[in-house]
Amino acid sequence: MPVRRGHVAPQNTFLDTIIRKFEGQSRKFIIANARVENCAVIYCNDGFCELCGYSRAEVMQRPCTCDFLHGPRTQRRAAAQIAQALLGAEERKVEIAFYRKDGSCFLCLVDVVPVKNEDGAVIMFILNFEVVMEKDMVGSPAHDTNHRGPPTSWLAPGRAKTFRLKLPALLALTARESSVRSGGAGGAGAPGAVVVDVDLTPAAPSSESLALDEVTAMDNHVAGLGPAEERRALVGPGSPPRSAPGQLPSPRAHSLNPDASGSSCSLARTRSRESCASVRRASSADDIEAMRAGVLPPPPRHASTGAMHPLRSGLLNSTSDSDLVRYRTISKIPQITLNFVDLKGDPFLASPTSDREIIAPKIKERTHNVTEKVTQVLSLGADVLPEYKLQAPRIHRWTILHYSPFKAVWDWLILLLVIYTAVFTPYSAAFLLKETEEGPPATECGYACQPLAVVDLIVDIMFIVDILINFRTTYVNANEEVVSHPGRIAVHYFKGWFLIDMVAAIPFDLLI
């Protein structure tokens, strides 16, 4: 008679799926529990143990900040960024110097990925580790590398530091407007667009060049630039800015003055950032001319202004700041037409079709709590990747769950009947059967004279019903998954307890 339990259901295979997918890609990662103190490590794979030199037993239950890997060259700011990422709910990448158990130093890129439950609360953290440099290539500990984003994938490793954006290309926007319009339909740009040429040739750093990471940081200074100062900065030398009595002219307006920039070969870094931020506020060169004239017309309804409409929906549905990093990277690809469009465009503009998908598509409701890094690593669709929660398995109709209350009560009843059979069957065979043979035949009273025979008949009927119930009862397979398919249940029961239950259900007393 089957006594099969499996009270692990309803099970959740999400954690096993993450481990299996990460292991298949030869990654070095740990999984931490966000619900406990210090976000203790609950799993670390073999790749991480080989990377740091510690065994799994030495890593388990330690804080996922990996303070046991810190050393003299470990930056405090990087460690603080990892700790801050564990307090938030967004994906974050941090470069930090770690030390192995043998004392060797290596520069590592740590990717902190939160995993949320159905309520939107962070319950786990996945920390992925990628070695960037070994100890002989690690720089000085005073050099802070965590304020910069990861290198873009479309640049060669040897040319990542030679990417320079020439400031004269930004200063000569109005001069290039006529050349853009003359391109017409034969050019790649839309009317009114501004073409910015980027020099990728390796050259020595000069005062006129600005690194790509500095251009990325310009967006942080746009908020500090007032509207009046932006307007004066875009007017140009024809209309000098008016300053109040006793007030000095704005240095932001002076930063885009061609006369002032041409007199000296070098520009201050602050002026460069502010000038680029001011130019980015204009949607095209037409807006710059309109600002000089004193009238700013409404933005025209053409394809170039609607190019950012799908980007707005993608940004609203993005799951991490990696989408913004990807957008900034692609927006700086050289030799393309940049349409400086305000994100607050007309909502009635139709979304044009684009061959290049900048932001990841909208994630469906079932995966809105899973970050983009987890979705990318697992390579699963929205119909396959579940949320991290207890999910009731989908069972067929008329199927009994093996952990249901009805099955528990039924098993206790069958257990009592088995005990009765084990006690009274030998007793009936030894004593009652002998008395029946010696006594007179009682054929007239039937079952009324033999109450134990009636009980034995009921017990046999219950055993037959138990066999039928076992054909529709779920079970737990070797992978700790609840199986509810009727065919698989029948095959599993035939290979197991079916023969024993059938022999126990045969009414031998009635056959004798």
Rank of each mutant, 00 (worst) to 15 (best):
D213S: 06
A57G: 14
H221P: 10
S304C: 12
G47Q: 11
A350Q: 07
D67F: 05
A156R: 13
I333R: 15
K364Q: 09
F125S: 05
P347M: 09
P310R: 07
A172E: 12
S206M: 13
D197W: 01
Q75Y: 04
F98T: 01
V377P: 04
H302L: 12
P258E: 11
C44V: 15
L69E: 01
E23I: 01
T17D: 08
P249D: 04
G189V: 05
V325N: 09
L170I: 11
V384Q: 08
L127F: 03
F348H: 15
H302V: 11
G149A: 05
P150A: 08
H221Q: 13
A282C: 08
L212T: 14
L267K: 08
H143W: 14
G294F: 07
P205Q: 12
K364E: 12
V41K: 01
Q376I: 01
A175K: 14
P157D: 13
N220Q: 06
L338V: 09
G184H: 05
L15I: 15
P352F: 04
D46Y: 05
C39L: 14
S351D: 06
R292N: 14
A203M: 14
T162F: 12
E274F: 06
K28P: 13
C105L: 10
D119H: 08
P150R: 13
R27M: 09
R242C: 14
P114Y: 01
L51P: 01
C105D: 10
S320T: 11
S264T: 07
E230V: 05
A188C: 06
I336D: 09
V384H: 04
L324P: 12
R4G: 13
D67T: 07
G103W: 01
I358F: 15
G226T: 07
V112F: 05
I30M: 06
L315K: 07
T305H: 12
G189I: 15
A175P: 14
S179K: 15
G186T: 07
G120R: 14
R292S: 05
V180A: 13
K93R: 13
E214F: 15
K28S: 09
S255L: 14
K21T: 13
K28A: 13
L69R: 01
G246R: 14
N128G: 15
L256G: 07
R280G: 10
G6N: 15
V8D: 15
N33W: 03
E208F: 04
G149D: 10
D136C: 08
T174F: 13
G120W: 04
V3K: 07
R181F: 06
E289L: 07
S178Q: 11
L107T: 10
A160I: 14
S263A: 12
V41T: 08
N146P: 06
C105F: 09
S26R: 13
C265P: 13
E58G: 01
Y43H: 02
G24P: 03
S263K: 15
K166Q: 06
L109W: 15
E23V: 03
G158K: 07
T367K: 07
P114H: 06
A57T: 13
G236C: 04
V279K: 15
P141Y: 06
L315Y: 14
V195F: 03
I330H: 08
N45F: 01
A382R: 13
P241T: 13
D102L: 01
G192M: 03
A78R: 11
S153N: 08
F129V: 01
S275Q: 09
S140F: 13
